[in-house]
Design a protein around this nucleic acid. Structure first.
Lengths: 149, 149
DNA sequence: CTGACTGCAAAATCTTTGCAAAGAC
DNA sequence: GTCTTTGCAAAGATTTTGCAGTCAG
């Protein structure tokens, strides 16, 4: 797992390389994502940052803009919830996929080497230049199955 | 592949079973999805139905309501495009996954037996009652790769 | 300094909802 | 007849954009 300073450096390099600037707001979005394990909506992040750093000025628009930037750079990943928006997570650990509970919204991560390999093969087969891949299994988690009995 | 009359019958049964009513609008959403191969946004479907059946009254809200119904019944599937909404397709053929071009939005379908099996195993491993599973590979399709050269 | 970035509020999207009229059974 | 469904328009929710002031390099 990449350490925060290293990650920060990577981010700065990326910004510099594209002629973008390093700002307090951008750093905070990255930091909060790094320090908090989990999946967050843009609003979650906005509130988190506001509560942990009441001193700084921050608009929700900046959170959206920064997340887009981070996602394009491959630093964070997003997962879509239909009309319920997106959630974001740090994308530097090994690639993994998600089990999503349709009852409680819980997210469980898993990874499977074989699936990863198959995805690459498929992309190749269609002459597709793969930039990302996601697999979501939706269903009802153990807890919710028990609860509804 | 299920024939349309059979499909329609299934739909009627489902409605009756839940105390819902069979209406012209609901039938048309199903029919247009059945007759047109591909993936559609609610608005696409609304326009398609309006143009093919100018006589009938139809509101976009009904299309949304019907699609939700059809998806819950497992008759259609949806695929999410982040903040760009959802697309729907008939869900009765064999399960398949998607390659999504981030340049032109093109959707390519594929299926892979091994992946299907692995997904089931994973769900089982987490005591997850799987209701659906999707795998999307995003990237740049062959045509767009060529175009940008 | 200069051009990128920010917050704000307004706008744009996409989707859902309340309600009176219409329709299915 | 009764209860669901519909269309419409208004409301919601989420995300994006325009702009003038601010800040990084």
């Amino acid at each position: 797992m990449t350490s925060y300073p290293t990650l920060l450096e990577t981010f700065k390099q990326l910004l510099k390389g594209s002629g973008f600037k390093f700002t307090k707001q951008r750093e905070l979005v990255l930091k909060v994502l790094y320090e908090n394990e989990g999946h967050f909506t843009p609003e979650d992040l906005y509130n988190l940052i506001k509560s942990k750093h009441p001193d700084i000025n921050l608009g929700i628009a900046t959170v959206y803009r920064t997340l887009t930037l981070l996602e394009e750079s491959g630093i964070v990943n997003s997962i879509s919830f239909g009309s319920k928006g997106k959630k974001y997570e740090m994308g530097l650990k090994e690639h993994h996929d998600h089990l999503i509970c349709i009852e409680c919204g819980r997210l469980i991560e898993f990874q499977d080497e074989t699936i990863e390999k198959l995805q690459e093969e498929i992309a190749q087969k269609f002459n597709f230049k793969m930039t990302d891949h996601i697999m979501n299994i939706t269903g009802i988690c153990e807890a919710c199955q028990t609860a509804s009995k």
